[in-house]
Nucleic acid binder design. Structure first.
Lengths: 143, 143
DNA sequence: ATCAAATGATTCAATATCAAATTATGCACC
DNA sequence: GGTGCATAATTTGATATTGAATCATTTGAT
């Protein structure tokens, strides 16, 4: 049975690893003046298509108020545009603009490459093992 | 050899697990109107003793400007106090006040218990393996 | 048909966060 | 012993983030 000390130590390692990788993998974003959140929104729109803000909030695990802010800032730079639902006017669907699509299509591959490069330190079995451990921990939280 | 897809998927799992656990483990902080950063500062001071802001920044992996803000907010609530170095007046050492010590001594055990409870889903071997995988990833970032 | 509850979005106030510029201080070198 | 570089902290301006309150709109119950 693990001690509370060991659990805490493992937790710290987990958070530090996630932080380090994230910082490392997103370093290139500053070249395009994109924040992580902005990147997250653009990426979701690219891979999942136009989406209302509620859906974006769910996908990115952020609050609704936050999404409003981030989409505001992206809209100022004309990387996305909002479109009020015709059927249900409460919804505001967020679309990539041409410029937004061009940007995220250019930036995303660099991001993916960067992550992949970092993960080459793990072999297939380790990768699978990591996924399994993370899944267990995630389930423990929901329970 | 893992594909870029697999690496991305593993990365997402890792970040989600870290996020979920953190959110879960820090939920009780709102009862004391403490943010995660404030908790981090108090905990560092409790376990490592009084510390200058530069050291706090290093320990919490945050910018110096950020620490100034967080310590400001803790000082407003009289949970910490600053003390200018007599020898070198550039340093400002942050100390727990009586109230601050009492608070963090009450809150920390709950935090540790919470983390430990979540990690009971992993046995000793899994815990060790998780630490190992995180360490490898962390090193990959520094390199 | 009407009013109430539900829902998506926005606003607001507070805190966090960073990067860059600034301030204050100490130290080394000449 | 003064000048310039290094360093700790703070400030500033921008964005992120949350939670609560508010607004607009839809839907459901009567």
């Amino acid at each position: 049975m693990a001690t509370s000390q060991q659990a805490l130590a493992a937790y710290v390692k987990l958070v530090r690893a996630a932080d380090s990788i994230t910082a490392c993998a997103h370093a290139h974003l500053s070249e395009h003046s994109l924040t992580m959140s902005q990147f997250g929104v653009l990426e979701a729109l690219l891979h999942k298509g136009p989406m209302c803000q509620k859906a974006l909030a769910g996908k990115l695990l952020k609050s609704g108020g936050n999404i409003t802010t981030v989409v505001d800032n992206l809209e100022k730079r004309a990387l996305v545009r909002r479109e009020r639902g015709q059927d249900d006017r409460r919804y505001s669907t967020v679309h990539l603009t041409e410029a937004g699509r061009a940007l995220i299509e250019a930036v995303f591959p660099v991001h993916a490459e960067g992550i992949a490069a970092l993960f080459t330190v793990l072999d297939d079995a380790e990768l699978a093992r990591l996924g399994e451990l993370c899944r267990k921990l995630g389930r423990a939280c929901s329970a």
